[in-house]
Design a protein around this nucleic acid. Structure first.
Lengths: 231, 231
DNA sequence: GTATAGTGTCATATATATGTAACATAACTT
DNA sequence: AAGTTATGTTACATATATATGACACTATAC
């Protein structure tokens, strides 16, 4: 099923690379958009988020690695797969690239076949993970596409972390997660923060839910962790 | 809770790779086993199935891809996560690797950090899938995922220890356990508490079950200990 | 830049769980 | 039945877990 909104964003300052990449994409009948720098890319993403981003590592202005990191921090873009494009001499930095949030990387020069293969693999994986755009639990409604939350019809304002937290609990509702599990799933694996920090964000989430009367859905299970439930 | 049977199986014909990988695993305090080919790996898996398999793509004899496919066909191994290790020149085949049933792949050369990060992510995902299950005994229902207990449809409120206690008895229903055995299994091995403490918690458990009329399932076996039974 | 919002950590308050002792009751023994 | 032992029950001091507000610091927006 091809959605008109499904497209790949190509971000590279070199026109030659963009042309080569886009040619390959066209041949495979992918839709695409081009951006010559991070700023342009950002405004395109905000208007219409792509399904995948091909991102040059070295760019004037905001570098690819910084841009990737930024995208990973924002809930509305954090799930978009990123393939980093690196020049041969920069190979050593690949690890830093992956740590900044890229899902895969390609070393220039690369063949169109290789490019397409990686794109396919990544899209397949991300399709599996991306369940639905709108999740509902009890009176709660969370739209992962527009990054909006409603409780009993009322709009709820949430910070990025609370949003991710609520999303995680809504995707796994009625299950208890220990603070450690919450940290691993919401904050990420190799991030070190205190377990008590979870308490604080739970508190902030509850506070935000108060005006809708849904705050009791976020439940404490003593000795075990937290749970989102409609009971 | 670290289980002695939790370990990672490393399958690669090159000793250098195995050494590098195992060193990284050791540093993270993972248990592991090594196998230099698919046949050896298979016999190890049959004896004691690992929690995760690191599998080289190119091996003499049965290739990694064929072996992965085989593991996916057998019910007792189909749920074991597999990370494929591929050499750089084999990159185009990555997709075939993923299609054969691998859950993730790493391109050599890879850094220990990257290896560990992927292992952690995969183990976390697989642990979460296996954790939830529902135990039923007579009219009792205990959900380990949501930490909920019901007796004849009614919700039962339990403290952490009573929950663990009931879970233990439900997992081993109709068997008598001495107070010492109960302490070892529910409290943990190297904890010292009075044996009579068990009595008190049994009492608390019975009290919590009272409203459902199921309190008689927790039975005293004079001189021996306690038992959970439907008779 | 300055203003604003978001984050993680700590200190403190509050709530709940735990282990033990003491006494009560029931069950076997003779 | 009295004596003896095992278990039941309750109360309570203590330990532990969670809630909450304040604060310093960072990131983001304007």
């Amino acid at each position: 099923m091809t959605n008109k909104n499904d497209y790949i964003l190509v971000v590279d300052d070199e026109r030659a690379i963009r042309d080569m990449v886009c040619m390959a994409l066209a041949q495979e009948l992918y839709q695409w958009e081009e951006a010559s720098d991070a700023h342009k890319a950002e405004s395109i993403i905000k208007q219409n988020p792509p399904q995948l981003i091909l991102l040059d590592w070295m760019m004037p202005g905001i570098s690819g690695i910084d841009f990737a990191r930024k995208l990973r921090r924002m809930p509305e873009t954090e799930h978009i797969p990123i393939i980093m494009l690196t020049a041969k001499t920069e190979e050593d930095n690949v690890i830093r690239g992956l740590e900044s949030g890229a899902d895969d990387y390609l070393t220039k020069p690369f063949s169109p076949r290789e490019l397409i293969a990686r794109i396919k693999a990544l899209l397949r994986r991300s399709k599996q993970e991306n369940t639905q755009d709108i999740i509902r639990v009890n009176g709660l409604m969370l739209d992962t596409g527009s990054y909006r939350v409603e409780g009993n019809g009322q709009t709820i304002e949430l910070g990025p972390t609370e949003f991710k937290l609520l999303r995680f609990f809504m995707e796994n509702s009625d299950r208890v997660f220990s603070r450690e599990q919450v940290l691993n799933n919401v904050w990420g694996d190799n991030v070190y923060v205190e377990e008590r920090t979870v308490d604080v964000h739970i508190r902030r989430l509850r506070k935000a839910l108060e005006k809708t009367g849904l705050q009791d859905m976020v439940q404490t299970v003593r000795g075990a962790g937290y749970r989102l439930s409609n009971k």
